[in-house]
Amino acid sequence: MYDLLIRSMNDQLTAEEDKQLQLALKVSAELREEQVKLGKVRKLFSSRNYSFSNGFRNRVMQAVSDEKKGKVISIDFTRTFTSMFNRIAISGVAVILLLVISLYISHGSLNVNTFTGVDPISEDNLISVLLYEK
């Protein structure tokens, strides 16, 4: 019956359960005393008010402001990094193009050997290299 009493404080009892509880409360002084005590416990908690120390709102707003600054800094860094990367990439591509043009001018073609700097390997050359002895 004690469980039913506690449940009655937190949940809707069925009509049958409520009838049972009311009957038990009528006949049991002990249960009535428990009901009063449980009610007092609940009152103790519902009347407890908490608050933060003075200046809480200002501290939160300061933290929010710092947070925003942090975001701005990180956005600025990303922007700077992106624009720097673009400049470096454009310069790099220009240098590569100049090198390719100079290679074309000096070698007259742009085949693999031109890039690797290796002369065309003919079978005769290869044999002569392999047969070479000091």
């Binding site: 404080m9 416990v41 609940r42 103790l44």
Partner: peptide
Amino acid sequence: LARAQKELRKILEPFV
């Protein structure tokens, strides 16, 4: 909640 209430009732016995 039911279990907590039983315990709180026990803990706060001298004060209610």
